Amino acid sequence: MSDGDWYFCTADGSVRQGKESRGLDRLGPYPDEATARNALEIVKARNASADEQDRDWNR
């Protein structure tokens, strides 16, 4: 993990380089600022995929 990693702070919606926010409030690391800005969309897509996998498993 490098100091150049980017994170999305769920507490205030900011994007920060480095581990400036609490671990519980941090999404990431992401390789760049633009990707970190899309963290909530990435999480939403991953959750939708996991939900679909769960539905398939239960069928």
Score class of each variant (00 low, 15 high):
46 R>H: 03
45 A>M: 03
56 D>P: 01
52 E>G: 00
15 V>E: 08
39 A>C: 05
44 K>I: 04
54 D>F: 10
41 E>W: 03
12 D>R: 12
5 D>Q: 12
6 W>H: 07
9 C>Q: 09
35 T>P: 02
55 R>F: 12
54 D>N: 07
13 G>K: 09
17 Q>V: 01
9 C>T: 11
30 Y>E: 03
49 S>E: 14
27 L>C: 07
47 N>A: 09
44 K>D: 11
56 D>K: 13
7 Y>M: 03
55 R>S: 11
22 R>D: 15
36 A>P: 01
55 R>T: 05
36 A>W: 04
21 S>D: 13
58 N>E: 13
27 L>H: 09
25 D>G: 07
43 V>T: 05
32 D>Y: 07
40 L>N: 09
58 N>T: 07
14 S>N: 13
54 D>W: 09
3 D>R: 11
3 D>E: 14
56 D>Q: 14
56 D>I: 07
7 Y>G: 00
10 T>P: 04
30 Y>K: 00
31 P>M: 03
11 A>W: 15
20 E>I: 09
35 T>G: 00
25 D>F: 14
44 K>T: 11
47 N>C: 08
1 M>P: 07
9 C>L: 08
30 Y>R: 02
45 A>Y: 01
19 K>G: 12
16 R>N: 10
51 D>I: 03
8 F>V: 00
21 S>P: 07
47 N>Y: 06
27 L>G: 02
1 M>H: 10
31 P>V: 11
48 A>Y: 00
47 N>M: 08
9 C>H: 09
4 G>P: 04
53 Q>P: 03
29 P>V: 01
20 E>V: 13
16 R>G: 01
29 P>C: 05
18 G>H: 08
8 F>L: 05
23 G>C: 09
36 A>S: 04
7 Y>Q: 00
54 D>S: 07
55 R>G: 06
22 R>W: 15
38 N>C: 04
36 A>F: 05
56 D>T: 03
20 E>Y: 14
5 D>H: 05
5 D>F: 04
16 R>D: 03
2 S>Q: 13
9 C>P: 02
56 D>L: 14
17 Q>L: 01
59 R>M: 06
5 D>L: 07
49 S>P: 00
30 Y>A: 00
13 G>Q: 10
49 S>G: 04
11 A>E: 15
4 G>K: 15
43 V>D: 10
32 D>I: 08
53 Q>G: 02
22 R>M: 14
57 W>A: 06
12 D>P: 06
16 R>H: 08
37 R>M: 08
30 Y>S: 01
41 E>I: 02
50 A>I: 06
28 G>H: 04
26 R>N: 10
12 D>F: 15
30 Y>I: 00
19 K>E: 15
31 P>R: 12
40 L>F: 07
34 A>M: 11
55 R>Y: 12
8 F>Q: 01
13 G>Y: 13
14 S>K: 14
27 L>A: 04
11 A>Y: 15
34 A>S: 12
27 L>N: 03
